[in-house]
Design a protein around this nucleic acid. Structure first.
Length: 514
RNA sequence: GCGGGCGUAACUCAGUGGUAGAGUGACAGCCUUCCAAGCUGUACGUCGCCGGUUCGAAUCCGGUCGCCCGCUCCA
């Protein structure tokens, strides 16, 4: 991992944010190559999920997969996050034990004491955890030096654990009293103020996910764009979470970008669509070079599902820092109609969809129609995690090569698509190279960078392109002067072939899958 | 939040109280007809930051910030 991070810095893929000021925990910037790589991955998602979903494959029942995009705001009405459950769920106060180094959710701790107020010490235990409860009873009995009956015990469930209270408490895994800290709120949502007055009434949050923007605009999209269920709404953008522990390079950042699709369908068809999406999303990541044992599709066990969720699968990648385990790239969740229900309740707006293709057949040949809250399948991918996985997968070490470190980035994602070199900077070769470079640039500038370089030795230039992940290098040599051919060097094999200079663009176009 | 490790040039690292170093990379020139080759030269340092001890600190001490690992947490 250190070698990958060093290369990312050296070649301008990823820099630490605010580095000259000492860095800022949980934030990373992308350099010239990294930002282009990230854009290519984002574009690939947009193309394959919105513009031509699933490469044109049909969904369940042979139906065309239809999706439309939206772009919603990072800051939404604060009630959005109350409805989504983030305000509660992202604010669990936690308590730390200075002795046992453990951390507890404050609302999970209970305290047992005797009914005798002179026996001041209390013993904490974790609600629903028999081990800590029995331990607490045992310790309490020892402390008061007598056997305790039911009537002697008092269990405090609604404690306000301030300093005075906690001084009397022995933690669940501690021996001494007074080692628990006061509850601290872990605001996983970034707070800000809307308007210049910045009072408590103006509090707003930076979104922790892009999905809610879609649910909030669901009705507008249905009413204004002639979409029919089943269909999807894609939304890409930055989200923010005040992670307790940002870790593992860009894997868990506080500012990160998501690519989320909310796919709405009839409840009866939701499991079929879930299966369809879970399989396509896996195939999509595989198509970008994350094939093989480092990628897996992991089904969330029933017991770990959120209460409203009927199924969930994660596309996971085996990162160097998770090895031999895996880290989540994308979660495909069956969310039922939870979100639309929540927003319907909290906002009072009707979210029901009127499906004119369902219901009983009327004499005039129309359907009566059926009103329902669609179910939602949510493939939600982490763009920065995707970039990181691509970088990890691409990083290759081969000491037998002149360039021992190189980046095997899939041609579709590679920030630099091709480079053009004169073998040596004389005999008119630079001029021919510049001409070919111009031609390729005119043809491929929308896809990514096309480089040219006539400095240094050819080996050095190849090696540079290898580290940048450029898949193909065209080289003009003395034969070019005679027969109008160039060599093409393949990054992954180092092998070369000779093609007509007039076919260079077609060759590259083919290799890039255009 | 706790514990451990680390922080010196763009990268990898040496330097344990006395003038800031090496290799690689970058840049310029020469040379060079296919893989970080060779020669010459140039640029690049708040030694993470702040404070303390000392005649003198990259080096010792305290604090702080950041990165990595483990726990915890989180999806």
């Amino acid at each position: 991992m250190d070698a990958i991070m060093a290369l990312c810095k050296r070649r301008g893929f990823v820099y630490q944010a605010s580095e000259i000021y000492g860095g800022i925990n949980g934030f990373w910037d992308y350099g010239p190559l990294g930002s282009q790589l990230k854009k290519n991955l984002r574009d690939a998602w947009w193309q394959d999920m919105v513009l031509r979903p699933c490469w044109g494959k049909t969904g369940p029942g042979g139906r065309e997969v239809r999706c439309v995009p939206v772009e919603t705001c990072i800051i939404q009405h604060p009630k959005v996050w109350a409805a989504s459950g983030h305000v509660g769920g992202f604010n669990d106060p936690m308590m730390d034990c200075k002795e046992s180094k453990r951390r507890y959710r404050a609302d999970h701790l209970r305290y047992v004491k005797t009914t005798d107020p002179s026996e001041g010490r209390m013993f904490a235990f974790v609600e629903g955890d028999a081990d800590t409860f029995e331990e607490a009873l045992k310790r309490l009995g020892k402390y008061v030096k007598r056997t305790l009956g039911e009537g002697d015990l008092e269990i405090i469930t609604d404690a306000k654990p301030d300093g005075q209270f906690l001084a009397r408490v022995v933690g669940p895994h501690a021996k001494e009293a007074g080692t628990l800290t006061e509850p601290r709120a872990f605001n996983l949502m970034f707070k800000t103020y809307v308007g210049a007055t910045a009072t408590d009434d103006d509090v707003a949050y930076l979104r922790p996910e892009t999905a809610q923007g879609v649910f909030v605009q669901f009705k507008n999209v249905v009413d204004t764009t002639r979409v029919k269920v089943p269909f999807g709404i894609g939304n890409v953008g930055k989200s923010f979470r005040n992670e307790v522990t940002p870790r593992n390079f860009t894997f868990r950042s506080r500012e990160f970008e998501q690519m989320e699709l909310e796919f709405f369908c009839h409840p009866d068809e939701s499991m079929e669509w879930f299966t369809f999406w879970r399989e396509f999303r896996m195939a999509w990541w595989e198509s970008l070079g994350l094939a093989g044992e480092n990628l897996r599709l992991y089904d969330t066990p029933k017991k770990d599902l959120a209460h409203y969720s009927q199924a969930g699968s994660d596309v996971e990648y085996r990162f160097p820092f998770t090895y031999p385990g895996f880290g989540e790239l994308e979660g495909v969740a069956h969310r039922g109609n939870f979100d639309l229900t929540q927003h319907q309740q909290h906002s009072g707006a009707k979210m029901e969809y009127n499906d004119t293709e369902r219901g009983e057949l009327l004499p005039n040949g129309q359907r009566r129609g059926e009103r329902y809250l669609p179910h939602c399948i949510e493939p939600a991918a982490g763009l920065d995690r995707g970039v990181l996985a691509v970088l990890c997968e691409a990083y290759t070490k081969d000491e037998s090569r002149p360039s021992p470190e190189f980046m095997k980035i899939h041609p579709r994602l590679a920030p630099i698509k091709a480079a053009v070199f004169p073998l040596v900077a004389k005999d008119g070769m630079p001029e021919i190279a510049h001409k070919l470079h111009d031609e390729l640039l005119r043809r491929f500038w929308r896809e990514g960078l096309v480089e040219s370089d006539d400095k240094q030795t050819i080996g050095k230039r190849y090696a540079r392109m290898d580290e940048a992940g450029c898949p193909y290098c065209f080289t003009i040599d003395s034969d070019t002067l005679k027969d109008q051919t160039v060599t093409v060097r393949d990054r992954d094999t180092g092998g070369q072939q000779r093609i007509a200079i007039s076919h260079a663009a077609a060759f590259l176009s083919d290799k890039l899958g255009l």
